[in-house]
Amino acid sequence: MKKIDADALGETLLRRFAGRTSRRSLLSRLGIALVAAPAFPLLPVSRANAAKADRSPEAKTAFARTAQTTDDTQCNYWRYCAIDGALCTCCGGGVHSCPAGAEPSPVSWVGSCINPDDGKAYLIAYRDCCGKPMCSQCGCDNTDRETQIYTPQLNNDIIWCFGTSSMQYHCSTAVLVSAAQ
């Protein structure tokens, strides 16, 4: 059984993101957070019962069993397994597009969601769109593999509008990054 590797998720995301941005200072700061993580490798779970509980990306959670692939304006759209906020698809944007006038955050929290069409897990970057008042359409709060702030890249409560001209949260997108490794 595979375990969630928060460091690997963050690293994959960062590598793909690095080629598309010039925000070096921000990357450098983010690097501190992510590079520091390997100093504290994911611990081997000491609970004797851990082998029985499947927390892996492939585990068919309640969300995964009811997810669909046709309507990205619904909270049960498969990519939204760990999204928290207003769906940009309902606010004039798209599943990976910010609405007009908003600005995508260059960093994000991440999730691993199962596409029910092929049964495989994919890495999703939940990138906030920033710089406008909060959109009040299609509020969702899904929590597959969502953790607390000490693992920030897996926490969906944080306002991720870092490196944008305004930190005002508007809505959230779900950008497909890669197959989960």
């Binding site: 375990k3 969630i4 928060a6 994911l42 611990l43 779970v45 000491s46 609970r47 851990a50 509980a53 927390r55 593999r145 953790t147 607390q148 702030i149 000490y150 693992t151 897996l154």
Partner: peptide, 13 residues
């Protein structure tokens, strides 16, 4: 020493 799993059984804030 590590005493909980931050990704598999996180402690609530």
């Amino acid at each position: 020493a590590p005493f909980f799993s931050a990704t598999e059984d996180p402690i609530f804030e």
